[in-house]
Amino acid sequence: MKKILPYLSVVLLLMTFTGFAQQKYITKNGEINFEASVPSFEEVKAKNSTVSAILNADTGEFASLALIQGFRFKVALMEEHFNENYMESSQYPKAIVKGTLEGFSMDGLSESTTEYSFKGTITVHGESQPLETIVTMAMIDGNVEMNSSFILKPEDFNIKIPSIVSNKIADEVTVTAIYTLSEK
């Protein structure tokens, strides 16, 4: 018994290490664009190119975090209103997506794009909603390229748009996400 114990502890230790040795792909420079423009009015469009994301290549679990202050608009006043009045970014500084790519496996990735369905939740303005979308993925130069586009409605996230500007902002916001994830 005495002799077995050290072996057992070594085996257990090795098992915990393999548990940690999951393959992860990460980025800190992902890009999210959104547009809520209405034709013939001022363009309502912003871009955030400091979005973080992690993909667990073994399980297909994916998480992404965007800082609301990181969204840049062409018009400074629009950016100010976006932060102060609509997103209330001092109170809710981040938007988070968490979920799983269904049926994901690293072996399925190649230079040509493969589609996966993503199921998870999105949290914006402190409100969580289910999110289902199609993600196109490809493996290019050892990096995982991920692209997705989906539509969000401000009202689902308790974001109130005053009636005076509501005809200048679309009810449906088109969000596009682009990630180039490299192995950690």
Binding site: I26, K28, T50, S52, A53, I54, A63, S64, L65, L67, I68, Q69, G70, R72, P93, K94
Partner: peptide, 16 residues
Amino acid sequence: GRCIGYDDLFEVVKLD
């Protein structure tokens, strides 16, 4: 730079 917040995923502060 301008501090845009704290990223809990990587535990880094981001500036733009």
